[in-house]
Design a protein around this nucleic acid. Structure first.
Lengths: 189, 189
DNA sequence: ATATAAATTGACTAATCACTCTACAAAGCT
DNA sequence: AGCTTTGTAGAGTGATTAGTCAATTTATAT
């Protein structure tokens, strides 16, 4: 068992439950089954651990999504996959998804270089950019379209977590929500 | 100058900048121009201060919104006012709005009784509920409609903060976004 | 086999922080 | 004027915590 990975996954669980500052490094170490010193061998500071956890989680989600997006043939399928599989990932790994948002609304976000953040969203932005230029989406700033699409996903995540529906209902309502989002953004000739 | 209010407004600024645990009570007190002991005279614990700040901020927003909503005659106007003035409030008081989200994704949320949270959203939920039953909105769970509407607002807030447009452009794009949201949720016969 | 490097430990430290306590001042009441 | 309540101050405290360090084990290379 990789100790670094063990530290990260333990930290994730504790951060979600107790918050960043509410979770002492000593507790992370002990629950991960390593010593205090080992934690600081892998991560120079606590902040570095937090940021590393964010980068890793974000990258996992992105890798997963990118694969799913590329399975789509036409744009609508790609976009649908992005929407639907973001939510499937979120529901399957609620702690990870929650952590991303928790991080986003914390001062730790400032510790991530702006370039890294841009990199994380570049693929998605490009996809949407193309759809705007092709006249599929309404002629609005790409940033706006991206933000609206993401907030739909975030909102749906919250709804799904709160309501805890069975898998069938969940699938159904995710599809409904996608149709709404599509309807909203698409260029109605 | 009311010391309690001074403590709250100082805490808000510091919490947004440094996070809850990253902000010592001693710093709140000194920057608010009161002594350490005075802070704990008004708020028994730091947690109580955080929660009080949340409740106050939420209530301020709600009171403001409720007034604006009631200025609408028909439902669409009420809903538009809710949407538009939420964003105007958010843009005018970005720290307060950010704080609400920061709080929402922190473990402090668990310290607020579920009843209080329900109370905060009851008025809005009822408004939307009515629109669903009247066949104005699509026949979807009210919770879902509420969540989607709120996430549109949150997304727009983020966009507006990021892009920092002039007032005219801002007004324009808020209206566009409302149209999109309306289009998405409304029952198309 | 030996030497060098990397991983691991856990006691330790220096600093921080939430909160207390005592003392005093101001305000309100009779 | 006395008395009580409330507000204010700020030094002090006990507990906690991020990060260090010297010592030991494990892995790697020659």
């Amino acid at each position: 068992m990789d100790k670094s990975a063990s530290i990260l996954s333990t930290a994730l669980k504790l951060f979600v439950q107790y918050g960043f500052h509410g979770t002492p490094t000593s507790k992370i170490a002990s629950e991960a089954g390593v010593s205090n010193g080992t934690l600081f061998h892998y991560f120079k500071t606590k902040d570095e651990l937090v940021v590393a956890l964010y980068s890793q989680t974000k990258e996992e989600l992105n890798t997963y999504l990118f694969e799913k997006i590329n399975q789509g043939e036409v744009f609508k399928d790609k976009f649908r996959n992005m929407f639907v599989y973001s939510l499937k990932w979120a529901v399957a790994r609620p702690e990870e998804f929650f952590f991303l948002q928790q991080f986003h609304f914390s001062p730790h976000l400032a510790l991530v270089p702006a370039e890294d953040i841009a990199k994380h969203s570049r693929q998605h932005t490009q996809l949407l950019e193309g759809a705007v230029q092709a006249g599929i989406f309404k002629n609005l700033p790409t940033e706006l379209i991206a933000t609206l699409a993401w907030s739909q996903i975030n909102g749906m995540y919250e709804f799904l977590v709160k309501c805890d529906l069975c898998a069938d209902k969940q699938e159904q309502i995710i599809n409904d929500a996608f149709d709404l989002t599509w309807l909203m953004l698409v260029n109605q000739a």
